[in-house]
Design a protein around this nucleic acid. Structure first.
Length: 806
DNA sequence: GCCTGAATAGTACCA
DNA sequence: ACTGGTACTATTCAGGCG
């Protein structure tokens, strides 16, 4: 009964007792152990113990689509014969592929690592039409096939492996069967997380790991313990070792950093390489390794980079740690130490300033720690919905998050996963945007369709597998307006099934939320969950029109927007016919005068007539439009002000200009006093001339969107970027460049910009630029409607400027 | 060569 | 590496004028 089996070089004893283990899945990987792939599920059990569950029963596979029936018979034998060492067996199975049921050959292999070469060899065999699902990594394949979800609870029948391997877990189990998902159990175990941040000595601009030491590493645990690891002067030999020892000692489940995948981890690893030291911090004492989507994997733990989630905060324009921490309300910039990045080495060298640098690093790690508390609950829900491990889901782009969600669903519906293929890009028509009625309007209701595109896709069964190509005769079809694409009414398409499930899940969660105390833990978990569901559902339309998508179908995207246009047009027509005053509309919303009875009747009519739900999103006490689409501002009844599209909410205008516009808007909307607003603008101009505006408000930030030498025109931010690069500053695609306009001989703006870090003197500033090209245009944008010209805004300041002069 | 308006480049927004 | 629609500024370029 009892037996000894061999795991690698370690002989283990398996006790006779199987037990049921309930655990929350944190991380997953696999290793080849004596020619057998061993899946390792790292988790936390119900008794808060760190465990790993081993499953050696699963084998990798992929599918071969034969040219025709004839090959279905011959190919399996031939393939088995050709690769006897690599292939365990083959079998025929029936799968759905773009609306058709097809017979495919499943090729079950011995070693996941051999799959890429096997795929290539087999694809060349005569009679093989296509090879599918050969690019799904093994551990994800395992989770898909067994309905296992990361960041979720599972139950497994397993036997404890008594003789422990030297891994950082409380117990090792060998699974008798694959674990089963317990989808009802949604609580989160008590996770131990460690926030960390490093500072490097950067005398020559960008720190380089082969040259510049790590001078400080700060950490903070979920229990609040803070640690500081310091280099000895510029010798960091011991810093990494002390840090890694501490990580092992604390044994975190999650390690969080800010931009850690692109900076801290590669830097740490490189720095260790220099000393021929291995950063053994995983639960198997392995070093961090690059993995999927640029994520750095630390076996047995989740390595989460919070910067990935900061990118989803459009309100924060320059996403530094300080700015994100301030925006999320976890640490005010005014209440923390701030040190310009390029001066860090000076603080380290100066004994009087070194303390301040350490405090700076601590403030960073405290911010990371607090951000983790805000962000991890969402990340966990996203991971469990998309099905990617917690540390990978953040680094995956929106497109891949949607795609992995679809891959998970495809398996459940017996759909084959299409390969990634290169395709030409062909644009198609999108949504309708109405010209606004310019001016200040009172009592305006914004009505919008909830989840318009997902619902359109559901209602008309729009999907790659229900698409009826030209010439094919199908009796029951939905025909898209304008573009004429046809989709079968029956059976349910892939997108319909997936989206229905998502929308239903969201509704269910929202219903549960209504019964919960908003302050409770459960509420927070479910709230984040419905948010994650919404994000995936809303991104699915965009995904299907993305040429890189496995389930790309241009006609699907094109038909969806075509129905969208029809619906909004019909809505507008109906609104007008019912006597509603229309102010504006964009894609899935209309702005109408809030005539309560008429609006309510209108909503009822739409809801019964169009098969889509329209509702009041908000009511503006006052709303202001210029001639431009997609730009307006409005005052709500609770006193809040919305600014949409205007300069005040753009990241590429100076803080000064944005502040001026915001205040002008505030005066107009709340006091309806253009003259007061104009006076305010004149005051600001006077202050600027008197050098009373801080330099920091004059910085203009713009993103570098391509390599510097690829730019065709001398744009201001490109010139500034070149100057930064010339001085040895790090700058790559995607970075933001901050510049200030200064007095220089040239006529072009590009001749007059300087990276803001180089500007020290106020007398250098090109005040005229800020007046004429920043303040006046944004103020006129609003005040122009009330009859104020640029000249008038400038005129009132003449007196002051003269007195300044004397 | 200078002026001017149109075309193009570039960025960031809205839904 | 989710989509198309849009506003806006600055640079570049072509054509008219002299």
């Amino acid at each position: 009964m009892n037996k000894t089996i061999y795991l690698g070089f370690i002989s283990i004893y398996l006790g006779p007792n199987l037990s049921q283990i309930v655990f929350w899945l944190l991380d997953i990987n696999y290793e080849m152990v004596r020619d057998i792939p061993e899946i390792r599920l790292w988790g936390i059990d119900e008794n808060n113990r760190r465990i790993v569950v081993l499953d050696r029963s699963f084998r990798p596979y992929f599918y071969v689509v034969p040219e025709n029936e004839k090959y279905l018979e011959s190919l399996p034998k031939e393939i088995e014969k050709r690769f006897p060492k690599d292939i365990l067996h083959t079998e025929i199975s029936s799968k759905d592929f773009f609306g058709k049921s097809i017979s495919v050959i499943r090729i079950v292999c011995r070693n996941p690592k051999k799959i890429p070469s096997l795929r290539d060899d087999i694809a060349k065999i005569i009679g093989v039409k296509n090879v599918l699902e050969a690019d799904i990594s093994f551990y994800l394949r395992y989770m898909i096939d067994n309905d296992i979800y990361p960041s979720s609870w599972h139950v497994v029948e397993a036997e404890e492996v008594k003789e422990k391997r030297t891994w950082q877990v409380d117990a090792i189990y060998l699974a008798k069967n694959p674990p089963k998902n317990i989808s009802e159990k949604r609580e989160i175990p008590k996770l131990k997380f460690l926030a960390f941040d490093i500072e490097c000595y950067n005398q020559y601009g960008t720190p380089r790991p082969e040259r510049d030491p790590i001078i400080i590493i700060c950490t903070k645990t979920s229990e609040g313990e803070e640690k500081i690891f310091l280099a000895k002067d510029r010798n960091d030999r011991d810093v990494m070792e002390e840090f890694s020892k501490y990580v092992l000692e604390y044994n975190p489940d999650i390690i969080v950093g800010y931009n850690s995948n692109l900076f801290d981890w590669p830097y740490l690893v490189d720095r260790c390489k220099k000393y021929k030291y291995r950063l053994k911090i995983s639960r198997t004492y392995f070093q961090p390794m690059p993995s999927l989507y640029g994520h750095i994997s630390i076996v047995g733990r989740a390595n989460v980079d919070l910067y990935d989630y900061a990118k989803d905060l459009p309100e924060v324009k320059v996403r530094t740690l300080e700015n994100v921490a301030e925006y999320l309300g976890v640490m005010k910039k005014s209440e923390r130490v701030l040190i310009p990045g390029e001066e860090i080495y000076k603080y380290w060298d100066n004994p009087k300033l070194r303390e301040k640098l350490i405090e700076y690093c601590l403030d960073d790690v405290r911010s990371i720690y607090l951000l983790a508390k805000e962000i991890l609950p969402f990340a966990i829900q996203l991971s469990s919905i998309v099905g990617l491990p917690l540390d990978i889901v953040g680094t995956a782009s929106v497109g891949y998050r949607v795609e992995w969600h679809l891959i998970r669903q495809a398996y459940k519906f017996n759909e084959l996963i299409p390969n990634k293929v290169e395709r030409p890009y062909r644009p198609y028509r999108g949504a309708i945007v109405l010209k606004p009625l310019p001016g200040l309007h009172e009592d305006i209701a914004v009505l919008d369709f909830s989840s318009m595109y997902p619902n359109i896709m559901i209602n008309y069964n729009i999907s790659p597998d229900t698409y009826v190509p030209l010439g094919e005769k199908v009796s029951e079809v939905n025909i898209a307006p304008e573009v004429g694409h046809k989709f079968r009414k029956k059976p349910d398409g892939f997108y319909r099934k997936v989206l229905k499930r998502l929308l239903a899940a969201r509704k269910e969660i929202k219903d549960k939320l209504k019964k919960l105390d908003p302050k409770s833990n459960e509420y927070k978990i479910l709230y984040e969950r419905q948010r994650a569901v919404k994000i995936i559902a809303n991104a699915t339309y965009g995904y299907c029109g993305w040429v890189g998508a496995r389930w790309y179908k241009r006609e699907v995207a094109e038909a969806t927007t075509a129905w969208g246009r029809k619906i909004i047009t019909e809505t507008i027509r109906l609104a007008k016919s019912m006597g509603l005053k229309l102010i504006y509309g964009d894609t899935d919303s209309i702005f109408v005068r809030y005539d309560k009875d008429k609006v309510e009747k209108f909503i009822d009519t739409i809801n019964s007539k169009l098969g889509l739900e329209i509702k009041i999103d908000k009511i503006y006490r006052r709303v202001f439009f210029t001639e431009a689409k997609k730009r307006y501002c409005g005052l709500l009844y609770d006193g809040r002000i919305d600014v949409v599209g205007l300069e005040a909410v753009r990241g590429d205008w100076s803080e000064l200009a944005k502040e001026v516009q915001e205040n002008v808007i505030k005066i107009i909307l709340t006091e309806n006093s253009p003259s007061k607003a104009a006076g305010y603008v004149q005051d600001v101009i006077r202050n600027l001339k008197n050098q009373k505006i801080p330099l920091s408000k004059l910085i203009i930030w713009k993103t570098v969107t391509k390599n510097i030498d690829e730019y065709e025109v001398a744009a201001a931010h490109v010139v500034a970027a070149k100057k930064l690069l010339a001085s040895g500053y790090p700058l790559t695609v995607g970075d933001k460049v901050g510049y200030i306009v200064v007095k220089r001989p040239g006529v072009k703006l590009a001749d007059k910009v300087e990276p803001y870090i180089f500007v020290k003197n106020y007398s250098d500033i090109d005040i005229e630029y800020y007046i004429n090209k920043q303040i006046v245009p944004v103020a006129t944008r609003i005040l122009g409607f009330f009859g104020y010209s640029e000249k008038q805004l400038l005129a009132g300041t003449r007196q002051a400027s003269l007195s300044d002069f004397f």
